[in-house]
Simulated scan of single mutants.
Amino acid sequence: MDTKALRDLDDAEVIKQVKTARREVFGLRFQHATGELENTAGLRSAKRDLARALTVARQRGLDENTKA
C-alpha cells in the first residue's frame, strides 16, 4: 500500500494495517529462515510497507496497543 492510500485511511484502519503488516513480515521471516520462501524480494517490500504504516501512525500520534 502506498503512502497516499495510508494517509487517506482513518486511525483505526491505520492501526489495523500496522498489525497486518507486522504479521506478514513475521510470516515471511519465518518462511525465509526455514527455507520455504521463494520470493525473497517480498520480504523487503513487506518491511517497507510496515515502515510506511508505522510512519503514518506515529505522525498521527497513534499507539497500536491502546486503540482498535
Results as ranks from 00 to 15, higher is better:
residue 55 T to V: 03
residue 13 E to W: 00
residue 55 T to D: 12
residue 5 A to C: 04
residue 27 G to C: 00
residue 15 I to F: 01
residue 67 K to L: 13
residue 34 T to K: 11
residue 25 V to H: 02
residue 51 A to I: 00
residue 66 T to G: 02
residue 23 R to H: 12
residue 5 A to P: 00
residue 51 A to Y: 00
residue 46 A to Q: 06
residue 63 D to N: 13
residue 44 R to H: 09
residue 36 E to P: 01
residue 54 L to A: 00
residue 1 M to Y: 04
residue 33 A to C: 01
residue 51 A to M: 01
residue 18 V to P: 08
residue 6 L to P: 12
residue 48 R to K: 08
residue 21 A to Q: 07
residue 37 L to V: 02
residue 57 A to T: 05
residue 30 F to Y: 12
residue 58 R to L: 11
residue 37 L to F: 05
residue 54 L to I: 03
residue 9 L to K: 14
residue 13 E to N: 09
residue 7 R to F: 10
residue 37 L to D: 10
residue 44 R to M: 11
residue 61 G to N: 03
residue 1 M to C: 11
residue 44 R to I: 15
residue 14 V to R: 02
residue 4 K to V: 15
residue 65 N to T: 10
residue 25 V to T: 10
residue 11 D to T: 03
residue 43 L to T: 12
residue 29 R to P: 09
residue 28 L to Y: 06
residue 20 T to A: 11
residue 13 E to Q: 10
residue 41 A to K: 07
residue 31 Q to N: 08
residue 53 A to G: 00
residue 31 Q to G: 14
residue 26 F to N: 15
residue 33 A to N: 11
residue 7 R to A: 10
residue 37 L to M: 10
residue 64 E to R: 06
residue 29 R to W: 04
residue 34 T to C: 11
residue 43 L to I: 13
residue 48 R to E: 09
residue 19 K to R: 13
residue 21 A to H: 04
residue 53 A to R: 02
residue 65 N to R: 10
residue 43 L to R: 08
residue 28 L to C: 03
residue 50 L to W: 05
residue 8 D to A: 15
